[in-house]
Computed example of a mutant assay.
Amino acid sequence: MRPRTPHNQRKAFINILINGASSGLGSGMAHAFTAQRHNLALCARRLDQLTELREQLLRDFPAIHVSIQVLDVTDYLQVFEVFHEFNKEFSSIDRIIVNAGLGKGPSLGTGCFDANLATANTNFVDTLAQCEAAMEIFRAQGRGHLVTVASVAAIRGQKNASLTYAATKAGLASMSEGLRLECRDTAIYVTTLFPGFISTEITKYSGKKPFQVDLTTGCKAMVRAIERKPATACVPSCPWTPISFILK
């Protein structure tokens, strides 16, 4: 049996590491978590946007601790260094959210292998490095919560521009499921999120999608799901949970 969290500890403020935090879902989740007074370790490629985000968060919630570091997830050595430096700074990291992703890439065989390769590397190989670094921390401290951000596109194969993206997100979801099986009967939790259409930099050039929600609404739904520590969650739950069954 997985050990239960004592009731009086469930609302404790914790230290959360979010990658891809400079914009989009990462930034949105950072705002939602600081509203709950959690401390944040934020990393991404763009230092200027990270700095601006940190200033915003501390202006609204000066009592929390927010640390930032530049991280290019394609530099695997840097991934391990940044994650462990955050862990040392905060004394422990309670939750790590593997969020950075890429959505470019056309149909296979159309002469754009480089774009598809970049998406495959960012969404799977680079997330593998982040999960590896996260699990090193959690195994050493004997507890933790790993959150991987997949997509409803991962539920079944997609075509055209979504083909490689969906395949890599499905791979991430499968890897997360394997980790969840490994961590049964421990104090390490693994959650996979399957977001629906949420307005971000990735989606703004692809036109309005069915059931698309704004960034704030989407990120609040993600944070609510994360706090429950489920194995998997479609977000927002309505309508994506019933749609996920139809897609299967």
Rank of each mutant, 00 (worst) to 15 (best):
N8P: 04
A166T: 07
E85T: 12
S67F: 08
R2P: 14
S67Y: 15
I226P: 03
A140Q: 15
V235M: 09
A100C: 01
E132Q: 15
L102I: 11
E85D: 13
L47C: 11
Q56P: 02
N87D: 14
T191W: 01
A233C: 04
S91V: 01
H65V: 12
A21F: 06
S237P: 00
T192V: 04
A153W: 11
V70M: 11
T186Y: 02
T34L: 10
I188G: 01
A118Y: 05
H145P: 00
A167W: 12
V70G: 10
A166D: 03
G28N: 12
I198C: 02
L71T: 02
R95V: 14
L179M: 09
I155Y: 02
F211T: 02
S176A: 12
L25I: 15
A133R: 11
G178K: 09
D94F: 13
N121F: 13
F80T: 12
E177H: 14
T217R: 03
N116H: 06
F61E: 15
G171N: 10
A173L: 04
T217E: 13
D60V: 14
L179V: 07
G24H: 06
E52S: 12
N39E: 05
L179T: 07
C131K: 06
P195A: 01
P210Y: 12
T216F: 10
Q212V: 05
F90C: 06
M175P: 06
E227N: 07
E52T: 12
T5V: 15
L163M: 14
S67M: 01
L71E: 14
T203Q: 08
T186E: 04
E132S: 04
L25T: 00
P242Y: 07
I226N: 01
G105M: 03
V152G: 04
R224L: 02
Q56R: 08
M29A: 15
M1S: 11
T74H: 12
T148W: 02
I18C: 06
Q158F: 08
F245D: 04
Y165M: 02
R59N: 15
P236W: 05
I96Y: 07
F124D: 00
Y76S: 14
R46E: 06
R143I: 06
I68H: 10
V147Q: 04
A118W: 00
L108W: 09
V125G: 00
S151P: 05
K159D: 04
Q130F: 00
Y205A: 10
K204N: 03
F86H: 10
L50P: 15
E52Y: 02
E89P: 03
Y76T: 15
G207M: 09
